[in-house]
Structures are given as structure tokens and as C-alpha cells.
Computed example of a mutant assay.
Amino acid sequence: MQKNLKRNNNSRVSDIGLNSLDAEKENKEYQNKFFEQLPDELYVQIFSQLDMRSLCRASMTCKRWNSAVSNNDSLWEPHCLAVRVVCKREIDDDRKSGFSWRDTLLRNYQKSKVKLEWLTGRYSNICSPGSLPEKIMYPMDAETWGEILEAELKRYAEKSQADLITLRV
């Protein structure tokens, strides 16, 4: 009798487990059908609220989301305009050349990060080329390096002027 009771309890537990698994599976199927029925305009509306990292991750979720994200250039425009703060000339040149907002962002995002670090003086006190981190040696054109050099010279002149004022006092 004890053995039958244990067997019955085990079968009840497994029935409950199977029922909850079935319910979970049905719920996921319902969710998938729900998302599949959403119009593309609603996807775009939702995706437009995402930051760049989340937008890229959403594009890796499924083929439909990838298509919705990759094929809608307006989703990439605000992120590209944020990069334009640092890479104005580069962004404007790419747009004039006919690149999409997405492609322009892909072409200039890493450059903007490196350029911003240079322009803000992050590497002003580097003593030798060997002490430069490898990631900052991103390929940039001569005009970009010219902008960085101008910023460095301006920073140096301001520092020299401040040093002279300190010596006079």
C-alpha cells in the first residue's frame, strides 16, 4: 500500500510537471503568434525607443526583427546624429556620398569613440608611441589627425599660459 501511495504521488507530481510544461509551451506559442501579428509600423515604433546597443541586440533576436531593424534607416538616424557631434565632417561626407544612416553609423561609430578620447586630451601625456593602447590607433584620415593635432596644440598653449601666470604670481 505504501508503494502504491508513493507511485501515485510520483505520478501526480509528474502530471503537474507535464501540465505546467504544456501550459508554458502553449503560452510561448501564444506570445509568438501575438508578436508575429504585430504590424511592422508598431515594431518600428517600439524599436525607435531603444538605445543603439539594444537596437543591435533586437536585430539578432529573429529574422523578422532583423529585417525590421536593418531595413528601416530612420531607426539609425538619431544614433548617427549623436556620433556626428564628434565626426561632423565624416558623417556629412558619407551622407553626401549616398551612404544610408545605418551604413554611415557603422563606418564612423568606432572612429568617433577614438576621436573623442583624443580630442578630450585622454592621450595628451603619452611619453612614447609604445605606451599608446592599440585600440586608439584606429585608421583615421589626415584631416581627422589634423583636428586632433590642433586640439593638442591648443591644450598645450593653454597649459603653457597657465604655467606662466602661476610663475608671475
Rank of each mutant, 00 (worst) to 15 (best):
V114C: 07
E24I: 02
V114L: 08
R107K: 00
W65N: 12
K96C: 07
E147A: 13
I136R: 06
A162L: 03
S59H: 05
A151P: 09
E143W: 12
I91K: 02
A151M: 11
Y30P: 01
P78C: 03
D163N: 10
S54R: 03
R95P: 04
K63I: 13
S131A: 08
L38I: 12
E90Q: 08
G17P: 12
R64M: 12
L132S: 15
H79F: 01
C87A: 06
W145Y: 10
S100W: 02
V86M: 13
N8C: 03
N32A: 04
D40A: 08
L38Y: 09
S54E: 05
V13S: 14
K115R: 15
W76F: 01
R89Y: 11
E24Y: 03
W101G: 00
K135A: 11
K113W: 13
N66K: 07
F99P: 02
P139S: 06
L106V: 07
E41S: 11
G17F: 13
E36T: 07
S100E: 00
N108P: 01
D73I: 00
P78S: 05
E134R: 10
F99T: 00
K88H: 12
K33Y: 05
I148S: 14
E36W: 05
K111T: 07
L105R: 00
G17S: 14
R95A: 02
R168T: 15
V86K: 03
S74I: 03
W101Q: 02
E24C: 07
N27L: 02
W65M: 10
L167H: 13
R84Y: 01
S124M: 13
M137Y: 08
D163S: 04
N108S: 05
E147N: 09
L18Q: 15
S124V: 12
M1S: 08
Y156W: 07
E90H: 01
G17A: 15
T120S: 13
S67K: 14
V114W: 04
K111D: 03
D141R: 11
R168D: 14
V85W: 11
E158G: 01
K115E: 12
S14E: 09
K33E: 10
L18G: 15
F34L: 10
K28F: 05
K159I: 02
T166D: 14
N19K: 13
L116M: 15
G130T: 08
E36L: 06
N19M: 14
Y43M: 04
V169P: 07
Q110Y: 08
L55C: 05
L5H: 01
C56P: 01
I126A: 11
L81H: 01
E152F: 04
K33G: 07
N8H: 09
A82M: 12
